Each structure stands twice: as C-alpha cells, then as structure tokens.
Simulated assay, not measured.
Amino acid sequence: MRIGELSRATGVPVRLLRYYEQQELLTAHRTPGGHREYEADAPVQVGRIRALLAAGLTSRTIRELMPCWEGGRLHPCVRDRLTAQLAELNTRIGELSTARDALADLTARVAEVA
C-alpha cells in the first residue's frame, strides 16, 4: 500500500504519516522507484497510533508500546506504564483546575473594579 492509499484509508494526512515514520512509529519499505510501500496492516497500526496519541501519550512512549500489541489489545505487561501515565495526567488536570479557579477569581475581581 502506498502512502496516498494509506492516507485515504485512514483519513490521516500524508504529511502526518511521514511524521509517524520519522518518529519510528510506522515503517515503510521503499520500492525500486523510491516510493513508500506499507504493509497491509498499516491502517491498523495508524489506528493504534492515533488512539495512543489521543490518550496523551508521547511519540517516544508510543514507540515503546507498539511492539506490545497482541491481536487487537495491548499486552497486560504495559498496565503499570499506562497507570503511571494516567496518574500523571490526573495530576496535570488537578493543576489546571487550580489554575482555572485562580484565573476565574482574578477575572471576577477585575470585573468588580470596572
């Protein structure tokens, strides 16, 4: 499957597919003419990449997790890694919530002066 076909099959722009390849998340072979050629399961891999990105994982973490798929699921050995990532995300959400409340308070005080 060529890059344009993969783009159409997944809805992911060609430029982004090249980025995934650059980040070593997706692998392509080159034809004798120099065109990228992807394996038949590339749309599934792109779907996995998109799901992991949507979960807030970095490219580096995704690269480490890509070999951990068994069938359509992540291997249980990555549970601790994902749990740690979830805890970090919850911490960030708490910090953002605190910042939002502080900003709302400042905004209310500005409105009182005006």
Rank of each mutant, 00 (worst) to 15 (best):
E70M: 11
P13Q: 12
A111H: 14
L74V: 08
V113F: 11
L26N: 01
E70I: 13
M66R: 05
R100E: 14
V44P: 01
P76K: 08
D101A: 15
A42K: 05
A9I: 05
R8V: 12
Y19A: 11
Q85E: 14
R79C: 12
E64N: 06
E70W: 01
T31G: 01
Q22K: 13
Y20T: 10
E88V: 05
G34E: 06
M1G: 10
A99T: 14
T58I: 04
A114F: 07
G72E: 14
L106S: 14
R109G: 02
I49G: 01
D101H: 09
A104L: 12
Y38A: 02
V113H: 11
A28I: 03
L26G: 06
A104C: 08
L103Q: 10
S59Q: 03
T83Y: 03
H35K: 10
S7N: 05
L74A: 06
R2Y: 13
W69A: 04
L65N: 03
G34L: 03
V44K: 02
Y20I: 06
D105C: 09
A114T: 14
R15V: 14
R36T: 05
L16T: 15
E37G: 03
A87V: 09
R50Q: 01
A51R: 07
I3R: 08
R8W: 00
R63M: 01
H75G: 05
V14C: 07
L103T: 11
A40S: 13
C68V: 09
L89C: 10
R30A: 07
G4N: 13
R100F: 07
G72L: 10
E21F: 09
M1T: 10
A9Q: 13
G72C: 01
H75F: 03
V44H: 06
E21V: 08
T98W: 07
A114G: 15
R18T: 09
L86C: 12
P32W: 04
V12W: 09
R79N: 00
L16K: 13
C77H: 15
P43H: 04
G47I: 02
T91K: 12
P67C: 06
L26R: 04
A87H: 12
E95W: 08
A108N: 13
Q45R: 15
A54D: 12
C77I: 11
Q23G: 05
P43W: 01
G56I: 04
L65T: 04
L96F: 08
L106A: 15
G56A: 03
E37I: 01
L53R: 13
P43D: 05
G47K: 02
P43F: 07
A51E: 05
Y38N: 00
G56C: 09
D80R: 15
A84D: 13
V110E: 07
Y19L: 13
Y38T: 02
D101Y: 02
R48D: 00
A9D: 09
R2T: 06
R36N: 05
L74I: 07
I93C: 09
A9R: 15
A28R: 03
E39S: 12
T31K: 02
